[in-house]
Nucleic acid binder design. Structure first.
Lengths: 330, 330
DNA sequence: CTGAAAGCGCTTACAG
DNA sequence: CTGAAAGCGCTTACAG
């Protein structure tokens, strides 16, 4: 039933070794036999068994993992908890396959540090720009975006469903009677930030409540924004923040400003980074499966390298609301 | 570096055969040795090589492919071109792996025709309901939805990006000066229908145009709706239809009503089914990679069966606008 | 340029 | 209940 190398070899009147060489583009095959083998493959509609192939192969795929400089530094120092987890997922996957990988910041990209020798790329981080995507499209080798998606670029990517996560979170609190929920939004051009904000907005609108959104830009003083929130709004009940890292800061600042969390005001995060469980009070947040984001992207790239698929896909991970102590569920 | 069965066997003081038996849950292992092997696996952090495993295994996975009765009939008669393609993708994938599959309509589900013996399921069709999803969640075996997603159910699924597709299509025509674009929307609770409609709406709104949407429900007379459209609107330029099957009918009806396509009025479809290329005039539409939708879903289920992943994901295929003759690009 | 043969890491009849 | 051994379908040094 199943067509194997052996069958092709018989039809083409060569050894299985030669069939394998043709398939893998070895130069050491005469044009004549190459044609014969190609015809046999065609006529039998032969496709190599991917399991056997990967078991037998000795050559390792060379993977380049690129990321914005900020992410690169954050990984090196283990400070950027989110991406540290994502990288664990990537490394776990590649270490079990025949893959070598190396990480580089995008600023090193022009130093042609061996892009040529790579078989494919993983581009990690919300900071991936259109320029970066175009650059890798030009290179012409398979690549997968991790934690970023830019509308209009039909490119393989793995993301988390920020819209759905924030929507579920806010809805949960609206259901128990909360009304004055304020959102702090990061204006950085990151797909997930935008989606989270839209999720908040949708949840509010569905309850006929006017969304109240404060923009934050990298480098700005969060504490100042917080003061403004407290000035502008009388007795806000809940502050939802675009990301755990900053939600944890918000809790601290709120304390400094003399507000009790969660008694007077609740705080909501997003990501479920490790320290969100250990801060005081522990942060109510949305869990994002970070390791899986990494391993899924690694796997997708691996499939691409194996020519398993053709059409680009967007893979979106579902999130999970995590109730902890930074906001009281009435 | 890499841990193999052999290493576990040595530590546990058994043969590799026994290690394999423990991993695969064979009953023919004494409790004592099972524990020893389990400990060895744990201590070495051993994970079987999936390629070797699948190459060596003799047992086939048993897959059940369920679908709404309408889809089932449409497949059998080869009339439902969209799903025929999806099934080709599924079959192509499974036929190359150690998988047996059988197709059943949901109406047969209660006849307990061997759900027990199945290892996993593919649920195919826009008509998959919450009830069906719940039923399969109760069964507790891996399953993946194909061409359907229901918000709130964090379940593995493979869909096409209807929003993005329709948005791109409409935008393309708006750009060249079209203004009076009318949309026929199918009210059936199908994720993609909704998304396509929203894509149309978004494109219109971005140009500050008021969306004009006519609802269609299965069983209704399309021709009547068309007459209403022609009566309500003076000189509509373009009619965008939720799906090729009906867009082709719309072309026919329009001709019957004395309208020239595309000279007087253009028609836009969605899906790129085979007959959309051969109808007169050939239909301008949005290509959905149907075979890949099937093979991607089959692959996802296979990965689930191999316990490769844990978190459920939504896999969304990008679409492509296809310019043909049923609408003039000015 | 080509083929015979070993080997990749598992599973599973088979024999005991 | 357990182990020795064959075999899954490829790739790739090795020898020619």
């Amino acid at each position: 039933m199943k067509i194997r190398t052996k069958d092709v070899a018989r039809i083409a009147n060569v050894s299985t070794a030669t069939v394998s060489r043709v398939i893998n583009g070895s130069p050491n095959v005469s044009e004549k036999t190459r044609q014969r083998v190609l015809m046999a493959i065609e006529s039998l509609n032969y496709k190599p068994d991917i399991f056997a192939k990967n078991l037998a192969k000795k050559r390792f795929y060379e993977i380049g993992i690129g990321c914005p400089d900020e992410v690169f530094r954050g990984i090196e120092s283990s400070e950027y908890q989110f991406y540290v987890k994502v990288f664990e997922g990537i490394q776990d996957y590649f270490s079990r396959k025949k893959c070598n990988y190396s990480i580089f910041p995008f600023s090193m990209l022009n130093e042609r540090d061996g892009v040529e020798e790579k078989d494919g790329f993983l581009l990690v981080g919300g900071g991936i720009s259109e320029g970066i995507i175009k650059k890798f499209q030009d290179i012409g080798k398979p690549f997968v975006l991790v934690d970023q998606f830019i509308s209009g670029y039909d490119v393989d990517c793995v993301i988390s469903n920020g819209f759905d996560g924030e929507y579920k979170l806010i809805k949960r609190f609206l259901k128990t009677g909360y009304r004055k929920i304020i959102y702090i939004h990061n204006v950085a051009k990151h797909f997930s930030y935008e989606q989270r904000m839209i999720g908040y907005r949708r949840a509010m609108r569905e309850k006929s409540l006017e969304p109240v959104i404060y923009d934050f830009a990298e480098g700005q003083d969060l504490k100042l924004i917080l003061k403004r929130i407290l000035d502008d709004n009388k007795e806000p009940e809940l502050i939802a923040v675009f990301e755990d890292r900053y939600a944890i800061d918000v809790i601290e600042y709120l304390k400094e400003l003399g507000k009790k969390v969660p008694e007077e005001i609740g705080v909501l995060g997003f990501d479920n980074i490790i320290s969100s469980a250990s801060c005081q009070p522990p942060l109510t947040t949305v869990h994002v499966p970070k390791e899986e984001m990494g391993s899924l992207a690694a796997k997708r790239l691996f499939d691409l390298l194996n020519k398993e698929d053709i059409s680009p896909v967007q893979i979106s991970l579902f999130t999970k609301v995590l109730m902890r102590k930074s906001a009281k569920l009435r």
